[in-house]
Design a protein around this nucleic acid. Structure first.
Lengths: 114, 114
DNA sequence: TTCATTGGTAACCCGATGGTTACCTTTTCT
DNA sequence: AGAAAAGGTAACCATCGGGTTACCAATGAA
């Protein structure tokens, strides 16, 4: 996965509408553009732009059937990114972090009451 | 985790500089602001703004010690988000998706050569 | 063949974001 | 006390992102 692809994926996930689109498509694969758009208060064109960035990031795949476009979510980029991150950040996860957070909060409390 | 927190987390992760900051802090917990800034070509103030959004998203915790600020990465928001998503999107992961992607690509190839 | 449906493009607008420089405050070192 | 070091604030600027309306193209149904 190239850095550009990583970038595109994170950027695509940054918008709540796009995340909801992924939710919709994961629940009902093969939805067409208009059906997706009908779930939002914004214009169809706005939704289409979101779909475009999702497709750029390969988080959504589509096939054209007649005059309509069927949309499918592709979870693999998320999977890949998560794998890389968890490896890269390992030795760090969970338990050790809880200690640090607690210690920071404790000290900040001490200062408040000082 | 409130929707706002989810939003803040994804938005914070959307910028490559901020992701690199997290990498740095995970590798060397307790770095101070200037040390982090020295790893980038942009100004210290720009880096501080990135740190601010990371702290808003609680992806970075900090404690002030004398005139310096020690910075720590907090992986828990990422962990939580990933857990929710994998549950929400389950029934979908990996194998089933590979089939769909292949089928889409095959049909698109057929069209090209038609 | 019309005409409705579905999707796509173009041009535009505004607010958010990411960057800058200039200046100020606090802490530490001599 | 005074200077250097570390961090923070303010004001500003350019680009980008997310939205809009208006219009066009292709497909399918009557």
């Amino acid at each position: 996965m190239t850095p550009e692809q990583v970038d595109a994926t994170f950027a695509a996930l940054a918008h709540p509408v796009r995340r909801r689109v992924l939710d919709l498509l994961s629940g009902r694969p093969g939805m067409i553009v208009g059906a997706v758009a009908s779930h939002f208060d914004i214009s169809r064109i706005a939704v289409m732009k979101h779909l475009a960035t999702l497709e750029d990031a390969e988080l959504v795949l589509s096939e054209k059937v007649g005059r309509e476009r069927r949309l499918y979510m592709n979870p693999m980029p998320i999977q890949q990114i998560y794998d890389r991150w968890t490896n890269q950040l390992s030795g760090f996860w969970a338990s050790r972090m809880a200690d640090i957070k607690e210690s920071v909060e404790r000290r900040s409390e001490e200062k408040k009451h000082a």
